[in-house]
């Protein structure tokens, strides 16, 4: 269920919290996205977008930490194939 796509916050608009929105970039496509649920998001952050709303700010350091592990096992297995 629930298609949600990560995009990068390009600029912020609107001071009213309920109307706070941003231009969000998805691989060069830009769309105005409602930030009412992610008031902490700032320019440069990646947010997860569902039906025009950012539903979560992607935690870059957490992503980095968990992906480092995935990358290491991927690299291990590639070495394994090579050997």
């Amino acid at each position: 269920m629930c298609l949600a796509v990560p995009g990068r916050v390009v600029d912020l608009t609107g001071d009213d919290p309920a109307f706070r929105s941003a231009n969000v970039d998805f691989c060069g496509i830009r769309k105005s996205i409602n930030l009412a649920f992610t008031p902490e998001a700032v320019v440069g952050d990646y947010v997860l977008v569902h039906v025009g709303f950012a539903i979560s700010r992607i935690d870059a350091s957490e992503a980095h930490r968990t992906f480092a592990y995935l990358k290491s096992i991927g690299a291990l297995s590639e070495e394994g194939y090579a050997a």
Binding site: P6, C27, I73, G74, L76
Partner: peptide, 20 residues
Amino acid sequence: MRYVDEYRDPAIAMALAGQI
């Protein structure tokens, strides 16, 4: 696409499948 493409990496997927 950041946070999408890296999670479609076949090498990592194969490694995880092997682990499973």
